[in-house]
Design a protein around this nucleic acid. Structure first.
Length: 452
RNA sequence: GACCCCAUCGUCUAGCGGUUAGGACACCGCCCUUUCACGGCGGUAACACGGGUUCGAUUCCCGUUGGGGUCGCCA
């Protein structure tokens, strides 16, 4: 089905620009891309912008941006969101709105051989009256009987009376002209496929191989649509998810590596992905697991990428990284990297690195910055000499022994003094990043407050 | 209404006639520990139902139920 190293494979993702990229659409794109990369074939992006005012250039940009964010690069297709603009590949244009003459030509050919006819100003295709059997890559052999409606009137319009071609027709003509060999698409197209197969036959060509992927459902089993949690790819982009994590989670919805692999780098997914392992049952979208997967990739991120991903989140919280040395920012972020599941949690977790004066959380101050704790903190302050994590830890533990208290009894007050909170990064490491001056200044301010 | 797809823990899944039905997320304990998180150990939890086929069905066949999808001059 998929000999690796088969450059003959030509697959495509053909979205309609609706203004957002659905997570299911993203998965369809991913599966096609993975298949192309696995086989050494070609991944084509085609924009199905045949109708409607909703096909704005902004809506097209949403798709291109989403695919680029996921890392799904295309070998043929548009270069930018301008339908009349440049494209790469020999089968263009890759916008259906630019391919009108081709549809008209094929419609005329059908008319000429009486496979279609005109009625009410529209062109109707003479649909086959009998059941059609299809060998689906995912579902296996599927034979479809005509529905009662179709039995009464099986023909369907391919060119509307206003001259515009309809979806089924442009889809087939484009797949034919672009030499598409495999079509992996949503299961919602399974029933349509029989029309497409009939159209291919009438056009004198053999259809590509189809594989229909079951749709992604909500946790409650209902259809996942626009408004549902996690349904739009923009959510992940805005919330700073790690793209590789989204790819990793998505590939596991409806496809299985057949062993217990969960967290995998993209290169591994590419080498292991293949059509026979695509499942045929609907999968439900589990945002909890998506977040876990994000954490698994987030904790492995190099400092520079972590900073890039975190920057927009901090900007929303009023912190501009440009005001700090990149090295300081990265050192600060590194102490928090494995403590949060999403970068959106970073600003609240370690904003204290980026303010002149920490603001104490009321409960934290009430619990730790009290007169009772003052003597111990004073003793500790005097004992702090080296300001690297190991030295700070040694000093604090020695002081604890000296005072006959547990380390935690010293840690929490100091933590609140330095960060204003009861939870945060490793105390020793955060003090090292803060540095001697900032740390001592914060301890002094806290000691002042502890005078009751 | 007709037609099509599907059915293992709450969720994602492994399984392809004989298993203590395995893993992951989530959840619950215990341990580790400077908080949090991580990590380690352990635990709760599934073959939708009914008929067959078979020495033997989670696994093969049929039906029921349930979920999803399609029947446009939308895509």
């Amino acid at each position: 089905m998929s000999e690796p190293g088969n450059p003959a494979v030509r697959v495509r993702f053909a979205p309609s620009p609706t203004g957002y990229l659905h997570i299911g659409g993203a998965r369809t794109a991913l599966f096609n891309w993975l298949y192309a990369r696995h086989t050494g074939g070609t991944f084509i992006l085609r924009i199905e912008d045949t109708d409607e005012a909703r096909n704005s250039q902004e809506a097209i940009a949403v798709i291109l941006d989403g695919l680029r964010w996921l890392g799904l690069d295309w070998d043929e297709g548009p270069v930018n969101s301008d339908p009349a603009g440049p494209s790469q590949g020999a089968c263009g244009p890759y916008f259906q709105s630019q391919r009108g003459v081709r549809y008209r030509q094929h419609a005329d050919a059908l008319l000429a051989k009486d496979a279609a006819y005109e009625k009410d100003g529209a062109v109707w295709f003479r649909m086959e009256r009998a059941a059609i059997t299809l060998h689906d890559l995912v579902c296996g052999e599927v034979t479809r009987e005509l529905t009662d409606r179709e039995a009464a009137s099986p023909d369907f319009v391919i060119i509307r009376s206003d001259g515009k071609p309809v979806f089924h027709f442009v889809n087939v003509v484009d797949d034919l002209e672009m030499g598409i060999t495999h079509v992996l698409r949503g299961e919602d197209h399974l029933s349509n496929t029989f029309k497409h197969v009939a159209l291919f036959r009438a056009l004198g060509a053999s259809p590509p191989q189809y594989g229909h992927i079951p749709l992604i459902l909500n946790m409650d089993g209902s259809k996942m649509s626009k408004r549902d949690t996690g349904a739009s790819l923009s959510t992940y982009m805005q919330d700073g998810f790690v793209p590789e994590a989204v790819v990793n989670y998505l590939c596991l919805l409806g496809w299985s590596p057949k062993d217990d692999s969960q967290v995998m780098p993209v290169a591994e997914i590419i080498s292991r992905f293949d059509v026979p392992q695509i499942l045929r049952a609907n999968a439900r979208f589990d945002f909890e697991k998506m977040q876990w997967m994000n954490y698994e990739h987030l904790r492995r991120l190099p400092a520079a990428r972590l900073r890039e991903l975190a920057a927009p989140q901090f900007r929303k919280a009023g912190v501009d990284f440009a005001a700090f040395a990149p090295g300081y920012v990265e050192a600060a972020l590194l102490t928090a990297q494995e403590k949060v599941r999403q970068v959106t949690g970073l600003p609240a977790f370690c904003d204290f690195y980026f303010v002149d004066e920490v603001s104490y959380e009321p409960e934290a101050a009430a619990a730790a910055l009290v007169p009772k704790n003052r003597p111990a903190m004073e003793t500790l302050r005097a004992a702090l000499t080296a300001f690297d994590a190991a030295g700070l830890e040694a000093a604090l533990k020695a002081t604890a022994v000296q005072l006959g208290v547990k380390p935690r009894d010293l840690v929490q007050p100091v933590r609140v003094a330095c960060t204003g909170k009861m939870v945060g990064p490793s105390l020793y490491h955060l003090m090292e990043v803060l540095g001697r001056d900032r740390t001592l200044r914060r301890l002094d301010r806290a000691l002042e407050r502890m005078k009751e």
